[in-house]
Deep mutational scan, measured.
Amino acid sequence: SIKEIEKEEIIKVLKEVNFNKKLASEILGIPLRTLYKRLKEYGI
């Protein structure tokens, strides 16, 4: 599903940037606030 793909992509990017959420949100092209929402939604 799209949610699974998105979750995997978020985890992959977070690992690449050593869990720097600000940098991860910039790489993913989403606002930091949205990233936090996704992390909560996906239980990351």
Results as ranks from 00 to 15, higher is better:
19 F>R: 03
12 K>H: 07
31 P>I: 03
36 Y>A: 11
44 I>M: 08
16 E>Q: 13
40 K>F: 11
31 P>H: 07
6 E>F: 09
26 E>K: 14
12 K>N: 08
12 K>E: 05
33 R>D: 15
42 Y>S: 04
27 I>A: 06
28 L>P: 00
44 I>C: 07
28 L>V: 02
37 K>G: 05
37 K>C: 07
25 S>I: 03
13 V>R: 03
41 E>D: 09
17 V>L: 05
23 L>Y: 06
23 L>P: 01
33 R>A: 15
39 L>M: 15
10 I>C: 04
33 R>W: 12
21 K>F: 15
22 K>Q: 11
34 T>W: 06
43 G>E: 09
22 K>L: 11
27 I>G: 02
15 K>M: 12
44 I>W: 10
44 I>D: 04
7 K>W: 11
19 F>T: 01
16 E>H: 09
14 L>T: 01
23 L>R: 13
17 V>Y: 05
3 K>F: 10
2 I>A: 14
13 V>P: 00
16 E>R: 11
18 N>T: 03
36 Y>M: 15
3 K>E: 10
23 L>K: 12
34 T>G: 04
37 K>A: 13
37 K>V: 07
33 R>P: 08
1 S>N: 13
35 L>Y: 01
9 E>P: 02
32 L>H: 02
17 V>S: 07
25 S>K: 02
27 I>S: 04
3 K>A: 14
14 L>M: 10
3 K>V: 11
5 I>T: 13
17 V>M: 06
16 E>F: 09
43 G>H: 10
41 E>S: 05
44 I>K: 06
25 S>T: 04
44 I>L: 12
25 S>Y: 01
36 Y>F: 09
13 V>K: 03
25 S>E: 01
18 N>K: 10
43 G>Y: 07
41 E>W: 06
39 L>S: 02
30 I>H: 01
3 K>R: 14
26 E>R: 12
26 E>D: 09
1 S>I: 11
15 K>V: 11
41 E>P: 02
17 V>W: 03
10 I>D: 01
21 K>D: 03
32 L>D: 02
22 K>I: 12
14 L>D: 00
1 S>V: 12
23 L>F: 06
40 K>T: 07
17 V>R: 02
38 R>Q: 11
1 S>K: 12
23 L>E: 07
29 G>C: 04
14 L>V: 03
36 Y>E: 15
8 E>L: 13
27 I>M: 09
22 K>D: 04
10 I>Y: 05
7 K>A: 09
21 K>P: 14
14 L>I: 04
11 I>Y: 09
37 K>P: 02
43 G>T: 05
4 E>A: 12
30 I>F: 04
33 R>C: 12
12 K>S: 07
